[in-house]
């Protein structure tokens, strides 16, 4: 089992302390308050596949995403990436670097995810430099060009600033940056929810193409069941921090087991109900 599955999420738990400052608690005699944002969640992802976590706001899906890439630590439980525990504090700095290099994240906001003062070339070169992946300026430029082409941008875009691009193009830059360190696991946190539909389709198709070409494994975070349907191999439904249902995509949508999942599917707007086929 451990050999087949690439990503193992085991009994993940994350608790946030929402208490008031201690002085206020003392004066008003209020108890500490906690929120279990992620509550005993376990699932696995096969190598080269997409696992989608679906849930509404407050379901804990973004917290899991942040734990999976190491931006946040778990309260208990662990995440294994190809057998390595990212949050293992006993690992050496070099071992940590090796794991970090293998995982990346694509963020939700195409506006906040790129430093507005940096040229695109520098944004893409930063991971290359930090992980010492290229030798010399020439090799660096070469790799930056390769990345730009990989996501459908042009080589000359390296000299421009993020604000010169549209939302969809910025999301492509974000994807190129995520690819820079040649990771095999990428967490996509609502990567298209801020984009217009015509552009969303471009970005989703690009992600699928990259998965096919590079054998990437995705953890795909979203609230949109229609997007998940064309993106994910398996789906887990989150509600209030708990994983309430998990199935292969087609089965989950055809025969949801929980009332909550049924309600989610029922609520999704149906554009095709007026027709049997468009295009």
């Amino acid at each position: 089992m451990l050999m087949v599955d690439f990503i193992h999420v085991e009994q993940l738990h994350r608790r946030f302390d929402l208490s008031e400052p201690w002085l206020a608690r003392m004066i008003y005699g209020r108890p500490k308050r906690f929120l279990d944002a992620v509550d005993n969640v376990s699932f696995t992802i096969e190598r080269g596949k997409t696992y989608a976590l679906v849930g509404e706001s407050g379901s804990g899906k973004s917290t899991i995403a942040r734990i999976a890439v190491g931006l946040l630590g778990p309260s208990s439980g662990r995440i294994l990436i190809d057998g390595h525990n990212l949050h293992d504090r006993s690992l050496s700095e070099a071992e940590h670097r090796r794991i970090r290099q293998r995982l990346q994240m694509i963020f939700q906001s195409p506006y906040a995810s790129l430093n507005p003062r940096w040229r695109v070339g520098n944004i893409l070169a930063e991971p290359l430099r930090t992980f010492s992946l290229v030798d010399g300026r020439q090799a660096e430029q070469h790799r930056v060009q390769e990345l730009l082409e990989q996501v459908g941008l042009s080589v000359s875009d390296a000299r421009r600033f993020p604000h010169e691009f549209s939302g969809g193009q910025r999301q492509r830059i974000s994807i190129a940056r995520a690819l820079a360190s040649r990771p095999d696991f990428i967490v996509c946190d609502e990567p298209t929810s801020a984009l217009d539909v015509s552009v969303q389709a471009q970005v989703l198709n690009l992600l699928k193409e990259l998965q096919r070409d590079l054998g990437l494994t995705f953890l795909f975070i979203t609230h949109d069941l229609a997007v998940v349907r064309v993106m994910a191999h398996r789906i887990g439904v989150l509600k209030a921090g708990k994983l309430i249902e998990e199935q292969a995509t087609a089965e989950l949508i055809a025969s949801p087991q929980s009332e909550y999942t049924r309600m989610l599917i029922r609520s999704a707007p149906r554009i095709r109900k007026h027709s049997d086929d468009v295009r």
């Binding site: 931006l71 990346q104 994240m105 906001s109 995810s113 974000s174």
Partner: peptide
Amino acid sequence: KEYVQAARLIGLGSGQIMVRHILPN
């Protein structure tokens, strides 16, 4: 903002993030 998280993801230290990423902004 997410660009700072992206910098943390590749393992930049706080000093580098403060000076190179946040300061210009």
